[in-house]
Design a protein around this nucleic acid. Sequence first.
DNA 1: CAAAAGTTAGTAATCAATAACTAAATTCGG
DNA 2: CCGAATTTAGTTATTGATTACTAACTTTTG
Lengths: 208, 208
Amino acid sequence: MAAPSRATGTVRMSADERRVAVIRAAVAEFAKGGLNGTSTAAIAKRVGVSQPYLFRLFDDKKALFLATVEYGFDRVEERFRRATEGLTGFPAMHAMAHAYHDFLGNDTDLLRIQLQAYAAAEDPELRADIRRFWDRLDSFVREVTGADGDELTNFFARGMLCNVVASLDLPRDRYFNDTLSAEGELLSCDLCESPERFGGPPAATPSD
Amino acid sequence: MAAPSRATGTVRMSADERRVAVIRAAVAEFAKGGLNGTSTAAIAKRVGVSQPYLFRLFDDKKALFLATVEYGFDRVEERFRRATEGLTGFPAMHAMAHAYHDFLGNDTDLLRIQLQAYAAAEDPELRADIRRFWDRLDSFVREVTGADGDELTNFFARGMLCNVVASLDLPRDRYFNDTLSAEGELLSCDLCESPERFGGPPAATPSD
DNA sequence: CAAAAGTTAGTAATCAATAACTAAATTCGG
DNA sequence: CCGAATTTAGTTATTGATTACTAACTTTTG
C-alpha cells in the first residue's frame, strides 16, 4: 500500500487509483457547475493534485466529465442491484424507487450529476454516450421488474422528478409522501400501502 | 411603427421590443449550451445586434438567462391555460399532459430550457428565482385540477421525463405511448383510455 | 536505472463587461 | 411645418480575467 515518502510525506497513487479519486472529486464539482461551469482547476484542487496532471489522466475535460457521469450511473445501478437482490416484479421496482429516493437524503450530488448530464447532452458526442448509460439502466430495470408501459414510465418519471427536487432543493414531502428515519433513510412511502397503483400483483415474476 | 430607415435599412426597435427579440434568441442558444456553455456573442449574433448592447438591455448574463427561463415557464403556463379553458379536475390535468407532451414535437427548446434551468439552480441567486417560477406553475396546476398526492406527483414527474426525452433525443414512444398527427400534434395517449389511473371519471377530450 | 507519478511555467483563446462614441427618433419652440 | 435640442437605440474598440491544455522538467518507486 502507498506509504508516505519519508522526506516529503507525499503519497503517490497508481494512475488508476488517482483516476477514481479524481472522478470522486469531479462528482462534487460537476454536480454544482456542470460541464461548462466547472473549472478543471477546482477539481484538481479538491483532489489535491496539480491541474495539468488531470490531462495526463484524461484526454480532455469532456472525457473527464463523461467518466464522471458514467461513474454516477454506475453508482445508481449498483444501488439498484443491491436493493433488488432476490426480488422481481413490483417488489423489485418498489425497492428501487426507495433506493433512488434515498439519494435525496444521502447523496444529492448523484442526482444533480444526472441533471448535468442531460443538460450537457446537446453535444452530440456526449449525447451518444449518455444515452448508452441511460439505456443500460433502462434495460436493467426492465429485466429485473418485467415492467413496461405506464408502470415503467412512472418509475423513471418519478426518478427525474427526484433530480429536480434535489436541484431546486424543494421540500421532500411536497411530491414524495413518505417517512424517513433520523439518518435520512426512507422507511415507508404511499406506494407501500397501495402497490396496485402500479397495476400489478405484488410478486409478478418477469419473463426472461 | 418601426420602418426601415431609407439610408441604411436598419430597423430600430424600442428597448422593450428588442428585449423580447433577445430573449427569443436566447431560448434557442441557452437551450443548447445552458448558462455557462453559451456565449453572449452567440446570442447577439442570432438576434442581429452587437454583443455589448445586450448589457444595456440586461444587467448581466445571469439576468438574461433568468429572463429567458422565466419566458420559458411563462410559455408553458400560457399553454396550460389555453388547454384547460373551461376544464377542471382530471380532464384539465389530462389536457395539460397532452399540451406538455406536444412540446416534444413542437418546441423541444422549451423543454431543454427547463433542464438548463434546473442544472443552473445550484447558484443560490438563480435557484431562488427558478423556484418561484416552479412554484407558480405548481400552484396553477393544483388550482385548476384540485389534484394532490400521487396524482400531482405523476403529472410533474412525467413532465420531467419529457424534458429528459427531449435532451437525450430518445424515441418518443419508449415512455409515452401515444399517436401523433403528421404535424406532431398529440392525438391520443394511453391515459385517454384509462383515465381511472388518475382516479377521476373519464371526460371530454379538450379541443385545441 | 527506468518507468511511472507528479510538478512548474507558460500560452493561446475565449469571453463578459466597460467606455466612449454615433445615428436615428422624438420633442418642442417659433 | 421646420429644424434645433434631447433622448434613445445602437456601434466599435478594448480589456482584464479566466481557462483548457502543452511542454519540459523533477521526484518517487519497483
